[in-house]
Design a protein around this nucleic acid. Structure first.
Lengths: 331, 331
DNA sequence: GTGAAAGCGCTAACAA
DNA sequence: TTGTTAGCGCTTTCAC
């Protein structure tokens, strides 16, 4: 079954298929009588226009794509990553579009998936993580005039790249503020080696920390290596100020948090420190060492990205080129 | 740009577009010379056939869909759910198809997303969770002759529904076996009220437990309510056998595990018991109360589902109507 | 207000 | 081996 076409509906209704098309597309140049008749027939036969044919005629796919970074296995393995998808998905379907999800495999043959999707015009717009926006992909998008939005702050030195990210500076601030509220004064931040230089979001979180500590006239203490923590409890601490015991440690990423947690075993003194990090996860309340979290609304991030993309696709004027999403302390 | 069509390539090569089409589709009835010339032109102009037009001509979309159960918020919120997606995605793109992901919103207007996708033939095949295979959707799939595979054992009383699931009986067995290996003898299983009747996978896990306990001539102890655990340590235990202290407790789902963990706080005695459940998660090693896990290869489940779907789409003979995937004890 | 016809970009008979 | 022609199902001028 299911092969019912616009022509058959037209025949059944005794009209031309152009008329049926007008009904489908809500064209107003049509008598109420005809419209009703055609609609009745369509309903009766459960007629639904073939989206492929429509796409061909409109030169549109009514589909939005999301391309994840396959090389970054962690991203795909990260459960929270998917909250973003969920947010996107909701907006996309509210706009009566479909949602094509892919990861950027290099295909054995010829092109990467990303390239294929752009070049074949399988979608009308694309959302990609900032890690995927390199020179090559940027050029591809521009050349093919494909609307897109980047999740995570854009790192490519190009102007006008639309992106959506959480406000990492603000996140660093409220987390630090929260620890201060809790009574901590000696608050350290673990930046993990060169990570802060590589990843701007880490640098931003640190900036928020710095700012808040400054506001409260508290000393900034940045840890580069977990090993440093050991000496903090020695008889001769690194800090010239002497015996100031650290009370809290902010980890900029979950990986860093894990590193500290692993490190903790050989270092029981660490267990006296309040641990804190960004982005809660389901099992956090059952952890051996309690951890303070910032709540990051990744679903909102997905939604904002999708909204921005539709604005771009519709060529709406005055679309902001970037959106930062505020975070809050989890309850 | 990017608007280059088959016709223009044909003109450039001085041949008919049918000839170009033959080159594209690897038709062998073509001279090597012409093929080379056409291929050169295509390459030179980065020509890629428009997938929509191809789809229309072939009456195929080269796309496979996955529909998640939106009403089951837990499923979408469950991080592990996405490992399945990852598995599907890999197979789908290896088959040179696209992957359309959706959840089954009821659309404000007219139909549900699921229905739209099936009816508009947006995909050539569909993977859906068993929770979504109700009478209505089943009829829709059959009526529209849409190939599909179900993840999770099929619960709808229909024959020939193709499904992929993990082997829950086997999972129950190896988890029980593992606890026995660890020296536990008094092993309980927490089935959580009417859950076992509602969800077959719970019943299956219990079946595996029963079987293994029987093999080892150990007593089966099924807990229906967490409260029962309290009395086990009382002076007059419920069990007629008297003072047999439970040594391990198997929780059939993560929700049950959480329930027990929450319960544990008011019940310090519980902390002596070994806890076990199915399907590991990233943070498990940092939990206050160590938990034993069965490793469930959800990615494999996705892969098998996708493979089965392609077999169905290609009308291969002798496709097995269901696949059970073995689990193992995590390291 | 409605119909006829051309065309979206591609494939697939059928001829030559 | 290649070109011609007729669709695939829909939209959209342009007449009437």
């Amino acid at each position: 079954m299911s092969k019912i076409t616009i022509q058959e509906i037209a025949d059944l209704a005794g009209v031309n298929k152009a008329t049926v098309s007008r009904v489908i597309n809500g064209n107003r140049n049509i008598s109420e009588k005809t419209r009703q008749k055609v609609e009745a027939i369509m309903k009766q036969h459960n007629y639904v226009p073939n989206s492929i044919a429509r796409g061909l005629a409109f030169n549109k796919t009514f589909t939005v794509g999301f391309c994840s970074d396959y090389t970054d296995k962690r991203a795909f393995a990260n459960p929270f990553f998917y909250k973003v998808l969920q947010g996107i998905e909701e907006i996309v379907y509210n706009h009566d579009h479909m949602f094509l999800m892919m990861s950027d495999h290099d295909n054995k043959k010829s092109q990467s998936t990303f390239e294929r999707v752009v070049v074949e015009r399988r979608v009308d717009g694309l959302i990609i993580p900032n890690t995927l926006l390199n020179e090559r992909n940027y050029d591809l998008l521009v050349k093919h005039d494909m609307p897109y939005v980047v999740t995570g702050e854009n790192m490519l030195p190009r102007d006008g790249v639309p992106w959506v990210d959480i406000d990492n500076v603000q996140a660093g601030q409220i987390l630090t503020e929260h620890l201060i509220d809790l009574g901590c004064r000696e608050i350290m931040i673990y930046a993990g080696g060169a990570a802060a230089e590589r990843d701007k979001f880490i640098a931003d979180r640190m900036k928020g920390y710095r700012k808040t500590m400054g506001n409260h006239r508290l000393d900034i203490r940045i840890i580069e290596q977990a090993e440093v923590l050991k000496s903090l409890y020695g008889s001769k601490p690194l800090e010239p100020a002497g015996e100031r015991r650290p009370e809290a440690l902010i980890c900029c990423t979950h990986e860093q948090l894990f590193e500290i947690l692993d490190f903790e075993k050989g270092n029981p003194l660490l267990s006296e420190i309040a641990l804190a990090t960004f982005d809660d996860f389901p099992m956090s309340k059952y952890m051996r060492h309690p951890v303070h979290f910032v709540e990051i609304d990744l679903e909102m991030m997905g939604k904002e990205a999708a909204r921005m993309l539709f604005s771009l696709m519709n060529k709406e004027p005055g679309v902001p080129k970037s959106v930062s999403i505020a975070t809050r302390i989890g309850s």
